[in-house]
Each structure stands twice: as structure tokens, then as C-alpha cells.
Design a protein around this nucleic acid. Structure first.
Lengths: 130, 130
DNA sequence: TTGCATGTACGAAATCTTTCGTATAGATTC
DNA sequence: GAATCTATACGAAAGATTTCGTACATGCAA
């Protein structure tokens, strides 16, 4: 069995990943409780099943040494974000990341501090290119 | 019946929208032929059905005056792009558009020309903020 | 008018994603 | 040790998305 390119998480899977990225490796119960803050009516076994599937898909790893298994994210947040951006760029921006950036900056407020951060990154990129 | 907020297109729907954005209002046949360039094994009636559904969902409008109906995008490309960015920012970037921008710039090549364009936009945004 | 080419309509299968009920097993408490 | 609490496992229903077969209508050429 070979290592597949990481599969893109579905919506429900992404909400689980968000919890784990923020809290670190967690049990099903911890994730479930956290998800209930935003969204009630979400069964425990639903989350369990999803996390089991995610472990199969290699989105999560699982430590079975304690009774309550502990799940961790297989890939760091940034890798997954890159993947999602890449997909969106391909599917909706004709492959041009800068088009996405322009759209993202145009209509969504960024603070001066954030704009400065972005400007510095552009400086770096232009420097490296010389 | 009220006007609903535009529904987010699914993957298959997005590929149809891309064709229509690029070619303008089109018949099912035209869209089908265009999609076959990237992806074979896609039936004509599959595309037809999708476009019918999209008309129901108000993603497309349809002109039935000629025998082959002509479909047009209900919303301009940019509106839909904004919508998709907004969704991704919420689901994967904790609501921070600038985080998305930083990630997008970090790992995806942008030409000097594009970087300049982005820099100018930042200048504008900072100017407006003063 | 018959037959063919080119359309739409529509139901339903196939597939993917999300949800949960039920079964079962190991700890803990009385 | 029996009851109870807390886990995982697993099948399968429910829902959403994608796919296509089949039926039927219309225009046109022989």
C-alpha cells in the first residue's frame, strides 16, 4: 500500500480538523464537546464515525494505547490550507493565485497591521526573485 | 417566494459556470463540448440535467425562445468568487482573509507584475483607511 | 410521411457524505 | 458481581451530488 496524496477534507471533516488544530491531539469526546458549542444536535457517534473514517483516509492518526483513543491531525494546518487554496485557485480562479489574492483583499477587511504584513511578504518575494 | 442568498455552486456546477463565464451565454451542447476537452466520459444528458438544476437554483438563467435553450450565469464571476473565498476563509482560516492571502502568496508563484498589482491594491486600501 | 438529427424532460441509479441506532466491551462503584 | 458509565465498532439510513437511460418533441430532408 502506497502513500496517497492527502485527500481533501470534506466540510464535516474540516470542522473536526479545526478543533484538533486548535486544541491539539484529542479524544472523540473532546472534539464532540467542542463542536457542540457551535452546532447542537450532533451525536457523539456521528463524530466518532467521522474520526474513524478520517483515520482510514489518513487525515488523522490514532493512538489506541489508552482506552479513549487519541486522534491527532496527520498534516499541519498550513499544509491543509495550502491544499484547499490550491483547489480553489484551480477550480475558480483559472489557476491564478494572485487573482484570488486580489479578490480576497478587495472585499474583506484587513487591518493596517495585516496589510503591512502582506506588504512585507511581497517585498521578500520580490527580493528573492531578483 | 423570496430571493434566497445565492447558493454556493457544487464542484460540477462550478465547472459549468467556468465555461459560461469564459464563453458567455451558451447552450447545453456548447458547454458539454467544452467540458469534454478536460474530461471525457461525460454524458450530454448529465450536463443538461445539471444545468436544469442550476436554473432551478438560480445559478443560471435560461432563455427558452430558441429551440436550444440558452443559459447564462445569474451572477458575475467575481460575486461567486467572493462567495467561495468567504466560505473558505470561514471554514479554514478562522475568518481571517489576510491569513488566506499570506498562505496564498507564500506557496504559489506570482509574477512580478502580479505582485505589483497586489501592492497597488494595498496602497489603495491603506489610503482609503486614512 | 417517414426517418433522422438534435433538442428537452424526467426518473432513478450510483456515489459520496453525514447521521445515528444498536451491539459490545472494559472500568468503576456499590 | 451486578449495575452503570464510558468507550469503540459497525451497519445502515438519510441526504446531497452526479450520472445517465429512456421517453418524447420538433425541425428538416428525402
Amino acid at each position: 500500500m502506497r502513500k496517497r496524496p492527502p485527500s481533501r477534507p470534506t466540510e464535516a471533516e474540516l470542522s473536526i480538523l479545526r478543533v484538533i488544530w486548535s486544541k491539539g491531539p484529542s479524544t472523540v469526546r473532546e472534539v464532540h464537546e467542542e463542536l457542540l458549542r457551535d452546532q447542537d444536535d450532533l451525536g457523539y457517534t456521528t463524530v466518532l464515525k467521522l474520526m474513524q473514517i478520517m483515520a482510514e483516509k489518513d487525515l488523522l492518526t490514532r493512538d489506541e494505547s489508552s482506552r479513549a483513543h487519541i486522534y491527532a491531525a496527520r498534516n499541519p494546518e498550513q499544509i491543509t490550507q495550502q491544499q484547499l487554496i490550491g483547489h480553489l485557485v484551480d477550480r475558480a480562479f483559472g489557476g491564478s493565485a494572485s487573482q484570488l489574492v486580489l479578490q480576497a483583499l478587495s472585499n474583506r477587511g484587513s487591518s493596517p497591521r495585516e496589510l503591512e504584513q502582506i506588504r512585507r511578504l511581497i517585498d521578500e518575494l520580490e527580493g528573492a526573485r531578483k
